[in-house]
Design a protein around this nucleic acid. Structure first.
Lengths: 152, 152
DNA sequence: CTTGAAAAGAACTGCCT
DNA sequence: AGGCAGTTCTTTTCAAG
């Protein structure tokens, strides 16, 4: 486990707010010189505390107005079944996130579609055709909010 | 809705793979000059196609080994109930994402905790104390994979 | 759209406290 | 660990084809 001091935490908090800030801007906010801030950020990358930077696309503006969370229960739960399901679900472009979970469902999928008819097509012709799929639960996304989290 | 040409799509695909690439590196890959690539990226930001860059932290390495998805059904569903719930849930630092959804549940929360006992504390003393909380479903995250998506 | 150039700023390095 | 000074690279804007 990686231990962080107060300054590292402040850096992460700032970078969570705006990941494009320069080392000099961050240094100014925390009372550090530009190289000092840079070296800390660099260490946070090297240590693996920061996995990287993700591009945050506006799926709605790009024509994918519908996001649906699917809970999926597998009917066939052997080792082969799981591997086969994962391989097949990976090939569906509308599936943005695949979460292997433990609980009432086996997988949780985040699926995007242009609209509801498009989603129905994805669900019927893609999701329901996946090998080993059992029960499927759907929840349509209305709005989403990300919080700073206990780490920053 | 924002219309993208093939080059913009290629840019987004590359940036999804690695959001830290320079305009000149992207230009080289797509056969564009550095200013041309830069202007396209700039336009993708301005148009809102790209919302920004998100810091991707390794919650596990930072000591939060447990991620749990909670489906929450509200018992009280008046306008006041929803507003009150959202205000209260926002104040819990362990809640990383709040998704307002339509379906079997009203909200989906992504919660992080240091370990299972820590998660039990969050669940009993924080989540279950939220105003208007009805049924709660839990799924523990085993592994997660993000896919390029139909946009890139 | 392109190339080329120039100025500003950010990233990175080595040395010193 | 932090700061200072300097080098290299990228970003950003411009002129011109």
């Amino acid at each position: 486990m990686i231990e962080l001091d107060t300054t590292d935490r402040q850096l992460l908090r700032e970078l969570e707010r705006d990941a494009t800030q320069s080392a000099s801007a961050l240094g100014r906010k925390l009372g550090l010189s530009q190289p000092a801030a840079w070296r800390r950020i660099h260490r946070l990358h090297e240590s693996g505390a920061i996995k990287g930077l993700r591009l945050d696309l506006d799926t709605e503006r790009l024509g994918f107005g519908v996001s649906v969370f699917l809970g999926v229960k597998l009917a066939t739960k052997g080792r082969v079944g799981i591997a086969e399901f994962e391989r097949a679900v990976t090939a569906i472009p509308e599936v943005q996130t695949i979460e292997h979970i433990l609980g009432l469902f086996d997988y949780r999928l985040r699926v995007v579609a242009r609209d509801i008819p498009d989603f129905e097509r994805v669900l019927r012709r893609r999701i329901m055709m996946l090998p080993g799929v059992g029960e499927v639960e759907a929840n349509v996304l209305l709005s989403e909010e990300r919080r700073p989290g206990p780490i920053g």
